[in-house]
Amino acid sequence: MRLIKLKYTKWYNIMKQGLSESNPIAIAVLGICSALAVTNRVENAIAMGLGVTFVIIASSATISLMRNFIPSKVRMVTYMVVISTYVIAVQMFLEAFYSDIATALGAYVGLIITNCIVMGRAEAYAVKNPVHYSIIDGLANGLGYTYVLVVVAIIREMLAFGTILNYQVLPDTWENWVVMAMAPGGFFILGMFIWLIRELTKNYEVVN
């Protein structure tokens, strides 16, 4: 397999890429299925974000360590096996120590396996770069995913239930916006957020 080495840069530039310039949700629009599903509560968004961050870091580190030994024919299968292993580990950890959150997240923890961000970072970065850069890249993308989820969840939970992390923040007279607890509310807030991030980072799609 011919590997293309990327031009190495300072760690904070890799972080900046993941958090804003190449944010997996706002710019690449990857992994939005789970982002829409779990952002009606902030605690769910935090748990999902941390779970995905751990899986990206662990799988990127593992793929990077193995990169010189992975036969090109079984490259994608290797990613899937490694990612699945870490996702099942996260699932077991949540079920054992945070069972309420595991119940609330339901099938979405298992579906981290299909989250394009994880596989995307393995193929686009980890398989071509040393382990320490891959870990930073995984952390940057995981945190980029997490903070978008948390911001969207704060807005949705506040409007849908009048609370943030189950603490009442709006007056009792607040009329709950039920639509914000449902997927259409997620689409609306996520769409607004993507627009905001693209505006701030001047990331416009060019029509040829």
Partner: peptide, 28 residues
Amino acid sequence: ETIRFVVILGLFTSTILLGMEYITNKKI
């Protein structure tokens, strides 16, 4: 080489899963 890699990968991932099973089983 491919078969050897697949076997090593299988052992590596099984070890992680068995370890997690051992840690979380009673708690679950």
